[in-house]
């Protein structure tokens, strides 16, 4: 009797807030997300339009880099999101793994392709930007290298997900991998940075913290917000789709 009470108390301490459990109910989630998506999608698209026109046409050209600096308006938002989405993916994966909330696992799974796409875009736009500015498509710079490793982490997560026939087991295995990855990302980042200074200290690119004029910064912030909103909308739309698919399957027990 006392043991039961103790275990109940223990379980209580690890409880999530009630709204998260409510969120885990497919019907509630469907209704809520259906209402949220337009609020993400429409401002996202509007801001994307404003940011693109502002950044590409109205922001002043860089005094050194000319017009080619404008790729920053795609490069920086995707690079920032590539890491942010990994965090979101790992957190939702952890929630799905620990509290066995299927929806959290689904959100995590849908974060992966968006995050991988952002990472790829950041690398691709970086290469396109690097060619005219640094004279080369690719350098083994610390940031580039850790971004590349991040892409591999995303691909590994997705591949592990796909490898299992039972999506439930696949998502739990992938969740463990995502959590291991999240511990490793800072270690990888700092080790790569350290390796870089060791091998080619002479060619550090002084782009870490470019002091950027407000006239260029504002469109950048608009683009960042637009990308974030559209990514969130995309993840939620994919998840809602999965929920609907699952409810349509008659042999599924849930």
């Amino acid at each position: 009797m006392s043991q039961t009470a103790a275990s109940t108390r223990r379980r209580k301490r690890f409880k999530l807030p009630l709204w998260m459990y409510k969120l885990a109910s497919p019907a509630y989630f469907d209704r809520l997300v259906g209402r949220i998506i337009p609020w993400l999608l429409i401002p996202g698209l509007v801001l994307l339009g404003i940011g693109l026109v502002w950044g590409l046409a109205f922001a002043p050209a860089d005094y050194q880099q000319g017009d080619s600096f404008r790729i920053i308006y795609v490069h920086v938002p995707t690079a920032a999101l590539s890491m942010g989405i990994y965090m979101a993916m790992a957190i939702t994966a952890g929630i799905g793994l620990i509290w066995r909330i299927r929806l959290a696992a689904l959100v995590s799974r849908n974060c992966a392709p968006i995050g991988a796409a952002c990472t790829f875009l950041a690398l691709a736009t970086g290469a396109l930007w690097g060619k005219p500015m640094w004279g080369t498509w690719w350098v083994w710079d610390a940031r580039l290298t850790s971004e590349l490793i991040l892409l591999f982490l995303y691909l590994g997560y997705m591949a592990l997900h796909e490898a299992f026939e039972d999506p439930e087991i696949g998502s739990r295995a992938a969740a463990i991998l995502a959590l291991v990855g999240v511990i490793n990302i800072p270690i990888i980042h700092y080790s790569v940075e350290w390796w870089h200074t060791l091998h080619q200290g002479a060619t550090i690119f002084k782009l870490d913290k470019p002091s950027i004029a407000p006239s260029m910064l504002w469109p950048l912030l608009v683009m960042l917000l637009a990308f974030a909103l559209l990514s969130a909308a995309n993840v939620l739309m994919r998840t809602r789709n999965n929920v609907l698919e699952r409810r349509l399957q008659p042999d599924d027990d849930e």
């Binding site: 490793i149 591999f152 982490l153 691909l155 590994g156 591949a159 592990l160 490898a163 299992f164 087991i169 295995a173 463990i176 991998l177 291991v180 990855g181 490793n184 270690i187 990888i188 080790s191 790569v192 350290w194 390796w195």
Partner: peptide, 25 residues
């Protein structure tokens, strides 16, 4: 994570090699 998969070899490489980077460095 891959022990129950029949063809886990290449997948194992993809999962583990990125995590090996700090040790290698």
């Amino acid at each position: 994570l891959t022990v129950s998969l029949r063809r886990g070899g290449i997948l194992l490489t993809l999962l583990v090699l990125p995590l090996y980077v700090p040790v290698l460095i």
